[in-house]
Computed example of a mutant assay.
Amino acid sequence: MTGLLVAACGLLGLAVGSFLNVVVWRVPRGESVVHPPSACPRCGHPIRPRDNVPVLSWLLLRGRCRDCGAPISARYPLVELGTAVAFLAVAWFTGPGWVLPALLYLAAISVALTLIDVDVHRLPDAIVLPSYPVALGLLALASADPGGTADWAALVRAAAGGAAMYTAYLVIRLIHPAGMGFGDVKLAGVLGLYLGWYGWGALAVGFFAGFLVGGVVGIALLAAGRAGRRTAIPYGPWMLVGAWIGVVAGPALAGWYVGLL
C-alpha cells in the first residue's frame, strides 16, 4: 500500500511540477495561470498536448521547440522532476494518512515560492495569502482524522503557531526593515501553522533552523565572493528549508536538546 502511494504521489508530482513551471513564470508578472494556453515564447505557437508530457516531451524534443527549434530551458524538466521527488519524499515520510494532502500542498508551494524568490526576490501574495485558508482546511482534515481518532488540540496549536511565527517575524521586520521583506512575514504565518500542528518542539526548531540555514548560506556566499555585504539574498527559501527541518526532525531534535538540559 505504501509503495503504491509513494509511486502515485511521484506521478502526481510530475503533473504538479509541470503546472508550477507556469505558476513560477506567470504569477510574478501578474498573468493568469490558466489562460492563455502555454506557447513557445519565441514563435508563439501553442504547445501541443503531446509536447506537454512532463520530462518525457522535453527529452523527445531534445530540448527544442517542435515548430521553430528554439531551445527549451532544462529548468522545466528539472522542476518537474524536483517536484516529483519532493512528493515521493513526503509520501514516504508520512505514509497513508490525512496529513498527506497538507504536506503535499506545502511541498508544492515550497517549490514555487523558492524559485520565484530566487528569480525576482518576492513572495507573491497570490500564492502566500490563499495558503492560509488552504493550509488550515487541510490541517483541519488531518486533525479530524476520519475513521481514526480526532486531535483538535493539534489544530488549535497550529493556529497558535501561525500567530506566533507571524508576530515574531513582524517584530523583526519592524526592528530591522532592511533585513526582511513583508512577504517573509506573511509566509512565516503559513509555516507556523504547519510547525504548530506538529508540536511546540517542531515550531521552535523550524523557527530557528530558518535563521541558521540562511546565515550559513549567507556566510558561504560571502566567503566564496558570490555576494557582498549589500547583496540582497532571498530569505524565503531558507525559511522553507527551516520549516521542513522542523516538520521532519523538529520533535526529535527538541527532545534531544531538552534531554541535554
Rank of each mutant, 00 (worst) to 15 (best):
R122G: 02
V85Q: 07
P237Y: 07
L78T: 06
L129I: 12
G242S: 07
L11W: 06
L191A: 11
V111M: 09
W25A: 15
A140K: 00
A153K: 12
L113W: 00
V247Y: 10
P36C: 01
I116S: 01
I245Y: 09
L115A: 02
Y132K: 07
S110A: 14
A154L: 10
L261H: 12
G250W: 04
G181L: 08
T94M: 00
F211K: 08
K186M: 02
G147A: 08
Y132M: 05
A144T: 09
R48Q: 15
G95C: 12
G183H: 11
L123R: 06
I109P: 03
A142S: 05
E31D: 14
D51S: 04
A108Q: 10
L129P: 01
L138E: 04
V53A: 08
P77A: 07
Y166N: 12
H176N: 09
P237S: 13
V99I: 15
L115P: 10
L139N: 04
A223P: 00
C68S: 03
R226D: 04
M239I: 05
A7C: 14
L88N: 00
V33S: 12
Y132I: 09
S38K: 12
A70P: 11
S110Q: 01
A70K: 05
R42C: 06
A227Y: 08
V85D: 03
A144N: 02
E80L: 05
A163E: 05
